[in-house]
C-alpha cells in the first residue's frame, strides 16, 4: 500500500546544487534525517504525502475489518479482531505523529482524506463479503504491507523508520493470525473451505496491486530510491510477495486465481520464482481514481464519523478552555 503512496508524488526541488549534493551525501552515508534537519522541499513533500497516505490507509483499513467485528463467529475471534483493528488505529496514530514532525497537522491530513485529495491504499476499496475475508486480509494484506514496510524500517527519515519498526512487529502478528483463520476454515466444513477460496479469489489480485504500478510506469520511484525513502522497486517487492505466498496457498489447499502462475527457473537472477499473469491495471487505476466498489462508502463512513463527532471535539476544546480560564482566575484572586 505504501508504494501507492508515491503515486503523484512531486519530488522536484528548487534548492542549490551544493545543498542537494550535501543532502545526498548524508543519505548515501546512511545517516538518518531528523525533523529539524535541513532537507529539500521535495523530500519533505514526498514524505508528507507517503506517510500521510500510509496513515490514512491504516484508518480507512479499519472499516473493512470493522465490518465483521459484530459478526465474528466466536468470542475468541471477536476479541482478536477487535485487538487487530485497534492496532491499525494505533498505527495510524504513530504515522500521523511522524508526519506532524514535518509540519503538517493531523486535522489538515484528515481534511485532505475526506475531500478526496489524499489517497489511501486501493485494497481497502474492496468489500469484505464473508468471514474468511478476515483471514485473507491478515494473510495477504498485512502480508503485502510487511513486504513493503520491512525495507521502510531503514528509510532515511528517522521518525518514519522508527514508527515502521514498531508497526512491522504488529503487522507480522496480524499476518500469522490471518493465516491461522484461513487454516481453520480450510480444515473445517466444505462451506468454510469455500468461503476461504472465495476470499482468496477476490483478494489475490487487489493484494498484488498494493505494490503499485509496474516499475516502468512508476514515475516517482527513481527519486525516492535515490533518497532512500524506498529501497526496492514495486515489481521486486511484488515478486517477493508472490514467491512467499504461493506455497502458503498450496499448504492451505487453495487455488491461486491465476491460470498463468507457474514456476520459472530464470526469475530472481536465476534462483527461480513464480511467474504470474497480467495484472488488470485498468481496474487498478479505476479504483485508485475513486471508482472502486467501496471508495464512496469508505469516505462517507469516515466523513460521517468526523461530522458526527464534531460536537464531541468542540466540547473537549471548550471544556479545556473553561478549565484554563478558571485556573488563571483562581491565580489572580
Amino acid at each position: 500500500m505504501y508504494s501507492q503512496g508515491l503515486i503523484g508524488a512531486d519530488g522536484r526541488t528548487e534548492e542549490s546544487e551544493a545543498f542537494l549534493d550535501a543532502f545526498q551525501k548524508r543519505i548515501d552515508a546512511e545517516e538518518k534525517i531528523e525533523p529539524k534537519d535541513a532537507m529539500p522541499e521535495g523530500y519533505r513533500r514526498t514524505l508528507i504525502r507517503q506517510i500521510g497516505q500510509h496513515a490514512h490507509s491504516e484508518i480507512v483499513g479499519m472499516l473493512p475489518e470493522g465490518n465483521w467485528i459484530t459478526r465474528a463467529p466466536s468470542l475468541k475471534r471477536k476479541a482478536a479482531l477487535l485487538a487487530k483493528v485497534q492496532d491499525e488505529g494505533g498505527h495510524g496514530l504513530y504515522l500521523y505523529a511522524a508526519a506532524e514532525t514535518l509540519g503538517v497537522s493531523r486535522e489538515q491530513m484528515t481534511e485532505e482524506l475526506l475531500s478526496g485529495k489524499a489517497k489511501y491504499s486501493s485494497i481497502f476499496n474492496y468489500p469484505t463479503l464473508n468471514w474468511a475475508d478476515m483471514g485473507a486480509i491478515g494473510w495477504l494484506v498485512d502480508g503485502a504491507a510487511i513486504m513493503n514496510q520491512i525495507p521502510l524500517c531503514r528509510c532515511s527519515f528517522g521518525p518514519y523508520a522508527r514508527a515502521m519498526i514498531r508497526v512491522c512487529k504488529e503487522e507480522s502478528f496480524h499476518q500469522r493470525q490471518g493465516y491461522e483463520i484461513m487454516l481453520t476454515l480450510c480444515r473445517g466444513t466444505a462451506e468454510q473451505k469455500q468461503m476461504a477460496q472465495d476470499a482468496l479469489d477476490r483478494l489475490w489480485w487487489p493484494a498484488l496491486m498494493m505494490f503499485g504500478p509496474h516499475d516502468a510506469d512508476s514515475a516517482h520511484s527513481e527519486q525516492s530510491m535515490k533518497w532512500k525513502i524506498k529501497r526496492f522497486s514495486n515489481d521486486q517487492l511484488r515478486q517477493k510477495f508472490i514467491d512467499a505466498t504461493v506455497p502458503q496457498a498450496e499448504y492451505l489447499g487453495l487455488t491461486v486465481p491465476d491460470p498463468d502462475l507457474r514456476w520459472d527457473d530464470s526469475l530472481n537472477g536465476g534462483k527461480g520464482g513464480y511467474a504470474h499473469g497480467d495484472i488488470d491495471w485498468d481496474e487498478f487505476w479505476r479504483v485508485v481514481k475513486g471508482d472502486g466498489v467501496m471508495n464512496r462508502d469508505r469516505i462517507k463512513a469516515r466523513k460521517k464519523a468526523w461530522d458526527d463527532g464534531a460536537w464531541v471535539r468542540e466540547a473537549a476544546l471548550k471544556h479545556a478552555e473553561k478549565r484554563a480560564m478558571r485556573k488563571t482566575q483562581e491565580a489572580a484572586e
Binding site: I59, M62, L63, G66, I69, T70, K78, L82, A83, V85, Q86, G89, G90, G92, L93, Y96, A301, K304, A305, D308, G309, A310, V312, R313
Partner: peptide, 17 residues
C-alpha cells in the same frame, strides 16, 4: 465494539475498543 472505526476521534476508537 459497534463504535470501532466510527468514533469522534482516533484516540476514542482506541479507548472504546
Amino acid at each position: 465494539a459497534e463504535w470501532c472505526g466510527h468514533a469522534p476521534i482516533l484516540e476514542e476508537d482506541l479507548a472504546l475498543t
